[in-house]
Design a protein around this nucleic acid. Sequence first.
DNA 1: GTCGTGCCAAATGTGCACATTTTGCCTTGC
DNA 2: GCAAGGCAAAATGTGCACATTTGGCACGAC
Lengths: 239, 239
Amino acid sequence: MTTRASKRPPKGDTEADETVYTAILDAILAGRLVAGTKLAETPLAELFGVSRERIRKVLHRLVAERRLEAVTNRGVRVPCPTPDDVRAIYQAHRVLEAGILVELASRLDDALLGRLADHIACERQAAADGDRAASVRLSGQFHLLIADSLGNAELSAALRDLLSRSSVMVSVFEAATDSICGANEHAAIVEALRARDTARAIALSGDHFRHIETRLRLKMPSGGRPDLPAIFRPPAPAG
Amino acid sequence: MTTRASKRPPKGDTEADETVYTAILDAILAGRLVAGTKLAETPLAELFGVSRERIRKVLHRLVAERRLEAVTNRGVRVPCPTPDDVRAIYQAHRVLEAGILVELASRLDDALLGRLADHIACERQAAADGDRAASVRLSGQFHLLIADSLGNAELSAALRDLLSRSSVMVSVFEAATDSICGANEHAAIVEALRARDTARAIALSGDHFRHIETRLRLKMPSGGRPDLPAIFRPPAPAG
DNA sequence: GTCGTGCCAAATGTGCACATTTTGCCTTGC
DNA sequence: GCAAGGCAAAATGTGCACATTTGGCACGAC
Protein backbone atom coordinates (compact mmCIF):
# COMPACT_ATOMS: atom_id res chain seq x y z
CA MET A 1 0.00 0.00 0.00
CA THR A 2 2.98 2.22 -0.52
CA THR A 3 1.59 3.60 -3.74
CA ARG A 4 -2.07 3.69 -4.53
CA ALA A 5 -2.39 3.72 -8.28
CA SER A 6 0.84 2.38 -9.69
CA LYS A 7 1.94 2.78 -13.27
CA ARG A 8 0.04 -0.27 -14.46
CA PRO A 9 -2.67 -2.48 -12.98
CA PRO A 10 -0.57 -4.52 -10.56
CA LYS A 11 -2.88 -7.46 -10.11
CA GLY A 12 -5.54 -7.19 -12.78
CA ASP A 13 -3.27 -8.77 -15.36
CA THR A 14 -4.71 -12.20 -14.81
CA GLU A 15 -8.10 -10.98 -15.89
CA ALA A 16 -6.49 -9.25 -18.83
CA ASP A 17 -5.34 -12.69 -19.95
CA GLU A 18 -8.85 -13.98 -19.58
CA THR A 19 -10.27 -11.05 -21.49
CA VAL A 20 -8.03 -11.63 -24.48
CA TYR A 21 -8.47 -15.39 -24.31
CA THR A 22 -12.25 -15.14 -24.15
CA ALA A 23 -12.39 -12.58 -26.91
CA ILE A 24 -10.39 -14.72 -29.32
CA LEU A 25 -12.15 -17.94 -28.36
CA ASP A 26 -15.57 -16.36 -28.77
CA ALA A 27 -14.56 -15.04 -32.16
CA ILE A 28 -13.53 -18.54 -33.21
CA LEU A 29 -16.62 -20.24 -31.86
CA ALA A 30 -18.98 -17.64 -33.26
CA GLY A 31 -17.38 -17.96 -36.67
CA ARG A 32 -16.34 -14.32 -36.83
CA LEU A 33 -12.81 -15.56 -37.39
CA VAL A 34 -12.95 -17.29 -40.73
CA ALA A 35 -11.10 -20.59 -40.95
CA GLY A 36 -7.61 -20.10 -42.28
CA THR A 37 -7.22 -16.58 -40.96
CA LYS A 38 -3.73 -15.82 -39.72
CA LEU A 39 -3.51 -14.26 -36.27
CA ALA A 40 -0.38 -12.11 -36.14
CA GLU A 41 0.89 -11.15 -32.73
CA THR A 42 1.68 -7.48 -33.19
CA PRO A 43 -1.71 -6.36 -34.55
CA LEU A 44 -3.50 -8.28 -31.79
CA ALA A 45 -1.30 -6.66 -29.17
CA GLU A 46 -2.11 -3.21 -30.49
CA LEU A 47 -5.79 -4.07 -30.83
CA PHE A 48 -6.21 -5.25 -27.26
CA GLY A 49 -3.78 -2.70 -25.87
CA VAL A 50 -1.57 -5.29 -24.19
CA SER A 51 2.00 -6.41 -24.68
CA ARG A 52 2.93 -8.86 -27.37
CA GLU A 53 4.11 -11.38 -24.77
CA ARG A 54 0.60 -11.53 -23.36
CA ILE A 55 -0.82 -12.24 -26.78
CA ARG A 56 1.80 -14.91 -27.29
CA LYS A 57 0.82 -16.64 -24.07
CA VAL A 58 -2.88 -16.68 -24.95
CA LEU A 59 -2.16 -17.86 -28.49
CA HIS A 60 0.02 -20.69 -27.28
CA ARG A 61 -2.67 -21.72 -24.84
CA LEU A 62 -5.22 -21.84 -27.65
CA VAL A 63 -2.78 -23.90 -29.71
CA ALA A 64 -2.32 -26.35 -26.85
CA GLU A 65 -6.09 -26.68 -26.68
CA ARG A 66 -6.13 -27.33 -30.44
CA ARG A 67 -8.30 -24.30 -31.04
CA LEU A 68 -5.57 -22.83 -33.25
CA GLU A 69 -2.84 -24.26 -35.41
CA ALA A 70 0.76 -23.10 -35.12
CA VAL A 71 3.66 -23.36 -37.54
CA THR A 72 7.12 -22.50 -36.31
CA ASN A 73 8.21 -19.01 -37.29
CA ARG A 74 5.04 -18.59 -39.30
CA GLY A 75 2.50 -17.68 -36.66
CA VAL A 76 -0.82 -19.22 -35.77
CA ARG A 77 -3.93 -19.66 -37.90
CA VAL A 78 -7.55 -20.57 -37.39
CA PRO A 79 -7.80 -24.25 -38.28
CA CYS A 80 -9.37 -25.02 -41.61
CA PRO A 81 -11.20 -28.29 -41.02
CA THR A 82 -12.02 -30.42 -44.01
CA PRO A 83 -15.52 -31.83 -44.38
CA ASP A 84 -14.03 -35.14 -43.30
CA ASP A 85 -12.74 -33.55 -40.12
CA VAL A 86 -16.17 -32.20 -39.29
CA ARG A 87 -17.73 -35.53 -40.12
CA ALA A 88 -15.27 -37.25 -37.80
CA ILE A 89 -16.29 -34.94 -34.99
CA TYR A 90 -19.96 -35.69 -35.51
CA GLN A 91 -19.18 -39.38 -35.68
CA ALA A 92 -17.25 -39.12 -32.43
CA HIS A 93 -20.17 -37.33 -30.86
CA ARG A 94 -22.51 -40.02 -32.12
CA VAL A 95 -20.36 -42.78 -30.64
CA LEU A 96 -20.00 -40.93 -27.36
CA GLU A 97 -23.73 -40.31 -27.09
CA ALA A 98 -24.45 -43.98 -27.75
CA GLY A 99 -22.32 -44.89 -24.77
CA ILE A 100 -23.95 -42.20 -22.68
CA LEU A 101 -27.39 -43.53 -23.55
CA VAL A 102 -26.36 -47.03 -22.50
CA GLU A 103 -25.21 -45.73 -19.14
CA LEU A 104 -28.17 -43.43 -18.78
CA ALA A 105 -30.63 -46.25 -19.37
CA SER A 106 -29.29 -48.07 -16.33
CA ARG A 107 -30.04 -45.21 -13.98
CA LEU A 108 -33.03 -43.43 -15.35
CA ASP A 109 -35.43 -41.73 -12.97
CA ASP A 110 -38.48 -39.53 -13.27
CA ALA A 111 -36.59 -36.40 -12.29
CA LEU A 112 -34.21 -36.75 -15.22
CA LEU A 113 -37.00 -37.62 -17.64
CA GLY A 114 -38.79 -34.51 -16.43
CA ARG A 115 -35.78 -32.32 -17.04
CA LEU A 116 -35.38 -33.72 -20.54
CA ALA A 117 -39.07 -33.16 -21.23
CA ASP A 118 -38.79 -29.59 -19.95
CA HIS A 119 -35.87 -28.94 -22.21
CA ILE A 120 -37.69 -30.27 -25.25
CA ALA A 121 -40.64 -28.07 -24.31
CA CYS A 122 -38.28 -25.11 -24.37
CA GLU A 123 -36.99 -26.19 -27.77
CA ARG A 124 -40.52 -26.39 -29.15
CA GLN A 125 -41.44 -23.07 -27.62
CA ALA A 126 -38.44 -21.43 -29.27
CA ALA A 127 -39.35 -23.04 -32.57
CA ALA A 128 -42.94 -21.86 -32.22
CA ASP A 129 -41.72 -18.35 -31.50
CA GLY A 130 -39.57 -18.46 -34.58
CA ASP A 131 -36.48 -17.70 -32.50
CA ARG A 132 -33.82 -19.31 -34.64
CA ALA A 133 -30.91 -18.39 -32.37
CA ALA A 134 -32.59 -19.87 -29.32
CA SER A 135 -33.54 -22.99 -31.25
CA VAL A 136 -29.98 -23.60 -32.31
CA ARG A 137 -28.64 -22.97 -28.84
CA LEU A 138 -31.18 -25.23 -27.16
CA SER A 139 -30.68 -27.92 -29.75
CA GLY A 140 -27.00 -28.11 -28.91
CA GLN A 141 -27.65 -27.91 -25.21
CA PHE A 142 -29.88 -30.97 -25.40
CA HIS A 143 -26.89 -33.19 -26.04
CA LEU A 144 -24.88 -31.46 -23.34
CA LEU A 145 -27.76 -31.98 -20.95
CA ILE A 146 -27.77 -35.70 -21.65
CA ALA A 147 -24.02 -35.91 -21.11
CA ASP A 148 -24.08 -33.83 -17.95
CA SER A 149 -26.81 -36.04 -16.55
CA LEU A 150 -24.22 -38.69 -15.79
CA GLY A 151 -22.46 -36.30 -13.45
CA ASN A 152 -19.07 -37.27 -14.85
CA ALA A 153 -16.88 -34.20 -15.28
CA GLU A 154 -14.47 -36.03 -17.56
CA LEU A 155 -17.20 -37.01 -19.97
CA SER A 156 -18.74 -33.56 -19.97
CA ALA A 157 -15.37 -31.98 -20.60
CA ALA A 158 -14.58 -34.40 -23.41
CA LEU A 159 -17.85 -33.63 -25.12
CA ARG A 160 -17.50 -29.89 -24.74
CA ASP A 161 -13.98 -30.13 -26.10
CA LEU A 162 -15.30 -32.04 -29.07
CA LEU A 163 -18.12 -29.59 -29.73
CA SER A 164 -16.13 -26.43 -29.33
CA ARG A 165 -13.50 -27.45 -31.84
CA SER A 166 -13.57 -26.84 -35.54
CA SER A 167 -16.31 -24.21 -35.40
CA VAL A 168 -18.96 -26.82 -34.90
CA MET A 169 -21.41 -24.26 -33.66
CA VAL A 170 -21.42 -22.64 -37.04
CA SER A 171 -21.99 -25.98 -38.66
CA VAL A 172 -24.85 -26.69 -36.33
CA PHE A 173 -26.27 -23.33 -37.13
CA GLU A 174 -26.05 -24.00 -40.83
CA ALA A 175 -27.69 -27.39 -40.45
CA ALA A 176 -30.41 -26.23 -38.10
CA THR A 177 -31.56 -23.35 -40.22
CA ASP A 178 -32.69 -25.85 -42.79
CA SER A 179 -35.21 -27.50 -40.54
CA ILE A 180 -35.89 -26.92 -36.91
CA CYS A 181 -37.53 -30.26 -36.48
CA GLY A 182 -34.63 -31.33 -34.29
CA ALA A 183 -36.87 -31.08 -31.27
CA ASN A 184 -39.00 -33.90 -32.60
CA GLU A 185 -36.00 -36.15 -33.01
CA HIS A 186 -34.87 -35.28 -29.52
CA ALA A 187 -38.33 -36.08 -28.21
CA ALA A 188 -38.24 -39.45 -29.92
CA ILE A 189 -34.97 -40.27 -28.19
CA VAL A 190 -36.37 -39.34 -24.81
CA GLU A 191 -39.49 -41.36 -25.52
CA ALA A 192 -37.39 -44.42 -26.26
CA LEU A 193 -35.53 -43.86 -23.03
CA ARG A 194 -38.78 -43.60 -21.12
CA ALA A 195 -39.86 -46.91 -22.65
CA ARG A 196 -36.52 -48.42 -21.54
CA ASP A 197 -35.78 -49.29 -25.15
CA THR A 198 -32.07 -48.55 -25.13
CA ALA A 199 -31.40 -50.00 -28.54
CA ARG A 200 -34.07 -47.79 -30.07
CA ALA A 201 -32.74 -44.72 -28.28
CA ILE A 202 -29.28 -45.39 -29.66
CA ALA A 203 -30.62 -45.99 -33.14
CA LEU A 204 -32.62 -42.77 -33.06
CA SER A 205 -29.63 -40.83 -31.76
CA GLY A 206 -27.49 -42.29 -34.52
CA ASP A 207 -30.06 -41.34 -37.14
CA HIS A 208 -30.21 -37.85 -35.68
CA PHE A 209 -26.47 -37.35 -36.10
CA ARG A 210 -26.48 -38.93 -39.53
CA HIS A 211 -29.15 -36.47 -40.60
CA ILE A 212 -26.94 -33.60 -39.52
CA GLU A 213 -23.93 -35.18 -41.22
CA THR A 214 -25.85 -35.56 -44.43
CA ARG A 215 -26.96 -31.94 -44.43
CA LEU A 216 -23.42 -30.85 -43.69
CA ARG A 217 -21.97 -32.90 -46.50
CA LEU A 218 -24.37 -31.29 -48.90
CA LYS A 219 -23.54 -27.83 -47.68
CA MET A 220 -19.85 -27.76 -46.91
CA PRO A 221 -18.23 -28.52 -50.27
CA SER A 222 -20.27 -25.72 -51.81
CA GLY A 223 -18.71 -23.11 -49.56
CA GLY A 224 -17.77 -19.80 -51.13
CA ARG A 225 -14.06 -20.13 -50.39
CA PRO A 226 -11.81 -22.44 -52.40
CA ASP A 227 -10.56 -24.34 -49.33
CA LEU A 228 -7.37 -25.26 -51.15
CA PRO A 229 -5.76 -27.16 -48.26
CA ALA A 230 -8.70 -29.54 -48.34
CA ILE A 231 -8.65 -29.78 -52.10
CA PHE A 232 -5.00 -30.81 -52.31
CA ARG A 233 -5.23 -33.27 -49.48
CA PRO A 234 -4.97 -36.99 -50.36
CA PRO A 235 -8.39 -38.51 -50.97
CA ALA A 236 -10.25 -39.80 -47.95
CA PRO A 237 -10.08 -43.53 -47.32
CA ALA A 238 -13.82 -43.63 -47.90
CA GLY A 239 -14.26 -45.25 -44.54
CA MET B 1 26.70 -17.32 -42.41
CA THR B 2 28.78 -14.72 -40.63
CA THR B 3 29.68 -17.10 -37.85
CA ARG B 4 29.74 -20.82 -38.23
CA ALA B 5 29.17 -22.16 -34.78
CA SER B 6 27.29 -19.44 -32.99
CA LYS B 7 27.09 -19.12 -29.27
CA ARG B 8 24.02 -21.38 -29.01
CA PRO B 9 22.32 -23.96 -31.22
CA PRO B 10 20.42 -21.66 -33.60
CA LYS B 11 17.73 -24.04 -34.76
CA GLY B 12 17.77 -27.03 -32.47
CA ASP B 13 15.72 -25.19 -29.87
CA THR B 14 12.48 -26.67 -31.05
CA GLU B 15 13.67 -30.12 -30.25
CA ALA B 16 14.94 -28.85 -26.94
CA ASP B 17 11.33 -27.98 -26.15
CA GLU B 18 10.27 -31.46 -27.10
CA THR B 19 13.01 -33.01 -25.01
CA VAL B 20 11.96 -31.20 -21.87
CA TYR B 21 8.28 -31.74 -22.59
CA THR B 22 8.71 -35.44 -23.18
CA ALA B 23 10.92 -35.86 -20.13
CA ILE B 24 8.41 -34.26 -17.79
CA LEU B 25 5.43 -35.99 -19.37
CA ASP B 26 7.11 -39.37 -19.19
CA ALA B 27 7.93 -38.78 -15.56
CA ILE B 28 4.29 -38.01 -14.86
CA LEU B 29 2.94 -40.97 -16.80
CA ALA B 30 5.45 -43.39 -15.37
CA GLY B 31 4.61 -42.28 -11.88
CA ARG B 32 8.14 -41.13 -11.08
CA LEU B 33 6.69 -37.74 -10.24
CA VAL B 34 4.58 -38.35 -7.17
CA ALA B 35 1.18 -36.65 -7.17
CA GLY B 36 1.33 -33.34 -5.37
CA THR B 37 4.98 -32.67 -6.17
CA LYS B 38 5.73 -29.03 -6.87
CA LEU B 39 7.68 -28.31 -10.04
CA ALA B 40 9.69 -25.13 -9.54
CA GLU B 41 11.00 -23.40 -12.61
CA THR B 42 14.54 -22.53 -11.59
CA PRO B 43 15.63 -26.04 -10.54
CA LEU B 44 14.17 -27.53 -13.69
CA ALA B 45 15.98 -24.96 -15.81
CA GLU B 46 19.28 -25.84 -14.17
CA LEU B 47 18.56 -29.56 -14.37
CA PHE B 48 17.85 -29.55 -18.09
CA GLY B 49 20.43 -26.88 -18.84
CA VAL B 50 17.98 -24.58 -20.57
CA SER B 51 16.65 -21.14 -19.81
CA ARG B 52 13.84 -20.61 -17.36
CA GLU B 53 11.60 -19.21 -20.10
CA ARG B 54 11.78 -22.50 -21.93
CA ILE B 55 10.75 -24.38 -18.81
CA ARG B 56 7.91 -21.92 -18.33
CA LYS B 57 6.62 -22.53 -21.83
CA VAL B 58 6.65 -26.30 -21.42
CA LEU B 59 5.02 -26.08 -18.00
CA HIS B 60 2.25 -23.86 -19.30
CA ARG B 61 1.66 -26.26 -22.14
CA LEU B 62 1.32 -29.14 -19.71
CA VAL B 63 -1.09 -27.06 -17.64
CA ALA B 64 -3.18 -26.30 -20.72
CA GLU B 65 -3.30 -30.03 -21.39
CA ARG B 66 -4.41 -30.60 -17.80
CA ARG B 67 -1.35 -32.70 -17.09
CA LEU B 68 -0.32 -30.24 -14.36
CA GLU B 69 -2.14 -27.84 -12.09
CA ALA B 70 -1.11 -24.21 -11.76
CA VAL B 71 -1.80 -21.63 -9.08
CA THR B 72 -0.97 -18.01 -9.80
CA ASN B 73 2.33 -16.95 -8.28
CA ARG B 74 2.65 -20.31 -6.62
CA GLY B 75 3.98 -22.51 -9.36
CA VAL B 76 2.72 -25.75 -10.84
CA ARG B 77 2.15 -29.11 -9.18
CA VAL B 78 1.50 -32.66 -10.25
CA PRO B 79 -2.26 -33.15 -9.87
CA CYS B 80 -3.34 -35.18 -6.89
CA PRO B 81 -6.40 -37.06 -8.13
CA THR B 82 -8.81 -38.35 -5.55
CA PRO B 83 -10.10 -41.90 -5.79
CA ASP B 84 -13.32 -40.37 -7.08
CA ASP B 85 -11.41 -38.64 -9.87
CA VAL B 86 -9.81 -41.89 -10.93
CA ARG B 87 -13.15 -43.62 -10.71
CA ALA B 88 -14.66 -40.94 -12.93
CA ILE B 89 -11.98 -41.55 -15.54
CA TYR B 90 -12.66 -45.27 -15.56
CA GLN B 91 -16.38 -44.59 -15.76
CA ALA B 92 -15.79 -42.25 -18.69
CA HIS B 93 -13.72 -44.93 -20.39
CA ARG B 94 -16.47 -47.46 -19.76
CA VAL B 95 -19.09 -45.16 -21.31
CA LEU B 96 -16.86 -44.39 -24.26
CA GLU B 97 -16.11 -48.03 -24.91
CA ALA B 98 -19.81 -48.89 -24.81
CA GLY B 99 -20.40 -46.40 -27.59
CA ILE B 100 -17.43 -47.73 -29.51
CA LEU B 101 -18.75 -51.27 -29.25
CA VAL B 102 -22.12 -50.15 -30.61
CA GLU B 103 -20.45 -48.58 -33.61
CA LEU B 104 -18.03 -51.44 -34.03
CA ALA B 105 -20.83 -54.00 -34.13
CA SER B 106 -22.28 -52.32 -37.18
CA ARG B 107 -19.12 -52.70 -39.21
CA LEU B 108 -17.44 -55.82 -38.00
CA ASP B 109 -15.40 -57.90 -40.39
CA ASP B 110 -13.18 -60.93 -40.19
CA ALA B 111 -10.02 -58.90 -40.52
CA LEU B 112 -10.80 -56.91 -37.41
CA LEU B 113 -11.87 -60.00 -35.48
CA GLY B 114 -8.61 -61.58 -36.50
CA ARG B 115 -6.58 -58.65 -35.21
CA LEU B 116 -8.41 -58.70 -31.91
CA ALA B 117 -7.85 -62.44 -31.61
CA ASP B 118 -4.17 -61.97 -32.37
CA HIS B 119 -3.88 -59.33 -29.69
CA ILE B 120 -5.54 -61.56 -27.11
CA ALA B 121 -3.18 -64.33 -28.10
CA CYS B 122 -0.30 -61.98 -27.36
CA GLU B 123 -1.83 -61.14 -24.01
CA ARG B 124 -2.14 -64.81 -23.10
CA GLN B 125 1.39 -65.49 -24.27
CA ALA B 126 2.73 -62.72 -22.07
CA ALA B 127 0.73 -64.03 -19.14
CA ALA B 128 2.03 -67.53 -19.75
CA ASP B 129 5.57 -66.20 -19.86
CA GLY B 130 5.01 -64.41 -16.58
CA ASP B 131 5.95 -61.12 -18.18
CA ARG B 132 4.01 -58.73 -15.97
CA ALA B 133 5.13 -55.56 -17.74
CA ALA B 134 4.09 -56.88 -21.14
CA SER B 135 0.79 -58.08 -19.75
CA VAL B 136 -0.06 -54.68 -18.37
CA ARG B 137 0.98 -52.91 -21.54
CA LEU B 138 -0.96 -55.26 -23.79
CA SER B 139 -3.98 -55.10 -21.53
CA GLY B 140 -4.17 -51.34 -21.93
CA GLN B 141 -3.47 -51.55 -25.64
CA PHE B 142 -6.46 -53.81 -26.12
CA HIS B 143 -8.82 -50.93 -25.41
CA LEU B 144 -6.82 -48.59 -27.60
CA LEU B 145 -6.95 -51.18 -30.37
CA ILE B 146 -10.73 -51.29 -30.15
CA ALA B 147 -10.99 -47.52 -30.24
CA ASP B 148 -8.51 -47.14 -33.11
CA SER B 149 -10.47 -49.71 -35.11
CA LEU B 150 -13.08 -47.07 -35.89
CA GLY B 151 -10.45 -44.99 -37.65
CA ASN B 152 -11.70 -41.82 -36.00
CA ALA B 153 -8.78 -39.66 -34.90
CA GLU B 154 -10.98 -37.58 -32.60
CA LEU B 155 -12.15 -40.62 -30.69
CA SER B 156 -8.69 -42.09 -30.45
CA ALA B 157 -7.30 -38.80 -29.21
CA ALA B 158 -10.06 -38.40 -26.65
CA LEU B 159 -9.43 -41.86 -25.28
CA ARG B 160 -5.68 -41.38 -25.12
CA ASP B 161 -6.19 -38.07 -23.39
CA LEU B 162 -8.42 -39.77 -20.87
CA LEU B 163 -5.98 -42.61 -20.24
CA SER B 164 -2.86 -40.52 -20.00
CA ARG B 165 -4.27 -38.22 -17.35
CA SER B 166 -4.16 -38.78 -13.63
CA SER B 167 -1.44 -41.39 -13.72
CA VAL B 168 -3.84 -44.01 -14.89
CA MET B 169 -1.07 -46.22 -16.11
CA VAL B 170 0.13 -46.64 -12.59
CA SER B 171 -3.36 -47.48 -11.47
CA VAL B 172 -3.72 -50.04 -14.19
CA PHE B 173 -0.45 -51.51 -13.16
CA GLU B 174 -1.60 -51.77 -9.57
CA ALA B 175 -4.85 -53.39 -10.60
CA ALA B 176 -3.37 -55.78 -13.07
CA THR B 177 -0.73 -57.15 -10.76
CA ASP B 178 -3.47 -58.63 -8.68
CA SER B 179 -4.73 -60.90 -11.38
CA ILE B 180 -3.72 -61.14 -14.98
CA CYS B 181 -6.94 -62.77 -16.01
CA GLY B 182 -7.82 -59.64 -17.99
CA ALA B 183 -7.13 -61.49 -21.21
CA ASN B 184 -10.04 -63.80 -20.52
CA GLU B 185 -12.40 -60.89 -20.03
CA HIS B 186 -11.11 -59.34 -23.23
CA ALA B 187 -11.66 -62.62 -25.03
CA ALA B 188 -15.23 -62.79 -23.77
CA ILE B 189 -15.90 -59.33 -25.19
CA VAL B 190 -14.50 -60.30 -28.57
CA GLU B 191 -16.49 -63.51 -28.51
CA ALA B 192 -19.71 -61.56 -27.93
CA LEU B 193 -18.77 -59.27 -30.80
CA ARG B 194 -18.19 -62.24 -33.05
CA ALA B 195 -21.62 -63.56 -32.10
CA ARG B 196 -23.09 -60.15 -32.98
CA ASP B 197 -24.43 -59.89 -29.45
CA THR B 198 -23.80 -56.18 -28.91
CA ALA B 199 -25.70 -55.97 -25.65
CA ARG B 200 -23.63 -58.78 -24.20
CA ALA B 201 -20.39 -57.21 -25.41
CA ILE B 202 -21.33 -53.94 -23.72
CA ALA B 203 -22.32 -55.71 -20.53
CA LEU B 204 -19.06 -57.65 -20.45
CA SER B 205 -17.06 -54.50 -21.11
CA GLY B 206 -18.91 -52.73 -18.31
CA ASP B 207 -18.23 -55.59 -15.92
CA HIS B 208 -14.58 -55.53 -16.93
CA PHE B 209 -14.24 -51.85 -16.00
CA ARG B 210 -16.24 -52.30 -12.84
CA HIS B 211 -13.86 -55.05 -11.78
CA ILE B 212 -10.95 -52.67 -12.19
CA GLU B 213 -12.80 -49.91 -10.37
CA THR B 214 -13.53 -52.21 -7.47
CA ARG B 215 -9.91 -53.24 -7.16
CA LEU B 216 -8.85 -49.62 -7.31
CA ARG B 217 -11.30 -48.55 -4.64
CA LEU B 218 -9.93 -51.21 -2.36
CA LYS B 219 -6.38 -50.15 -2.98
CA MET B 220 -6.30 -46.41 -3.31
CA PRO B 221 -7.61 -45.22 0.08
CA SER B 222 -4.95 -47.35 1.77
CA GLY B 223 -2.12 -45.40 0.15
CA GLY B 224 0.87 -44.62 2.28
CA ARG B 225 0.61 -40.85 1.96
CA PRO B 226 -1.99 -38.83 3.84
CA ASP B 227 -3.49 -37.34 0.68
CA LEU B 228 -4.88 -34.41 2.64
CA PRO B 229 -6.48 -32.60 -0.34
CA ALA B 230 -8.60 -35.66 -0.95
CA ILE B 231 -9.42 -36.08 2.70
CA PHE B 232 -10.70 -32.54 3.14
CA ARG B 233 -12.72 -32.56 -0.03
CA PRO B 234 -16.53 -32.57 0.35
CA PRO B 235 -18.00 -36.06 0.29
CA ALA B 236 -18.88 -37.50 -3.06
CA PRO B 237 -22.53 -37.23 -4.13
CA ALA B 238 -22.70 -41.01 -4.00
CA GLY B 239 -23.95 -41.02 -7.56
C1' DG C 1 4.18 -18.77 26.38
C1' DT C 2 1.60 -17.66 22.46
C1' DC C 3 -0.14 -14.77 19.09
C1' DG C 4 0.27 -10.89 15.96
C1' DT C 5 3.17 -7.97 12.98
C1' DG C 6 6.74 -6.55 10.03
C1' DC C 7 10.71 -7.62 7.17
C1' DC C 8 13.61 -10.49 4.01
C1' DA C 9 14.64 -14.03 0.71
C1' DA C 10 12.89 -16.78 -2.97
C1' DA C 11 9.96 -17.71 -6.67
C1' DT C 12 6.85 -16.24 -10.23
C1' DG C 13 5.14 -12.91 -13.76
C1' DT C 14 6.13 -9.43 -17.26
C1' DG C 15 8.06 -6.13 -20.49
C1' DC C 16 11.91 -5.26 -23.46
C1' DA C 17 15.67 -5.76 -26.61
C1' DC C 18 17.96 -8.70 -29.71
C1' DA C 19 18.68 -12.93 -32.82
C1' DT C 20 16.76 -15.62 -36.40
C1' DT C 21 13.70 -16.83 -39.87
C1' DT C 22 10.45 -15.82 -43.41
C1' DT C 23 8.73 -13.40 -47.38
C1' DG C 24 7.86 -10.01 -50.76
C1' DC C 25 10.31 -7.33 -54.04
C1' DC C 26 14.01 -5.65 -56.63
C1' DT C 27 17.83 -6.32 -59.43
C1' DT C 28 20.46 -8.78 -62.70
C1' DG C 29 21.58 -12.12 -66.05
C1' DC C 30 20.12 -15.06 -69.89
C1' DG D 1 10.44 -11.22 -71.16
C1' DC D 2 11.29 -14.45 -67.69
C1' DA D 3 13.58 -16.64 -64.12
C1' DA D 4 16.92 -16.89 -60.48
C1' DG D 5 19.36 -14.85 -56.80
C1' DG D 6 19.81 -11.60 -53.24
C1' DC D 7 18.27 -7.94 -50.16
C1' DA D 8 15.47 -5.66 -46.90
C1' DA D 9 11.45 -5.32 -43.99
C1' DA D 10 8.46 -7.67 -41.03
C1' DA D 11 7.25 -11.18 -37.95
C1' DT D 12 8.41 -14.75 -34.71
C1' DG D 13 11.38 -16.81 -31.07
C1' DT D 14 14.35 -16.20 -27.04
C1' DG D 15 17.11 -14.63 -23.19
C1' DC D 16 17.48 -11.16 -19.70
C1' DA D 17 16.46 -7.85 -16.18
C1' DC D 18 13.10 -6.01 -13.24
C1' DA D 19 8.50 -5.76 -10.65
C1' DT D 20 5.44 -8.17 -7.75
C1' DT D 21 3.86 -11.59 -4.87
C1' DT D 22 4.46 -15.32 -1.53
C1' DG D 23 6.13 -17.71 2.58
C1' DG D 24 9.00 -18.04 6.35
C1' DC D 25 11.25 -16.06 10.25
C1' DA D 26 12.37 -13.14 13.81
C1' DC D 27 11.07 -9.65 16.98
C1' DG D 28 7.99 -7.71 20.10
C1' DA D 29 3.46 -7.24 22.64
C1' DC D 30 -0.06 -9.16 25.55
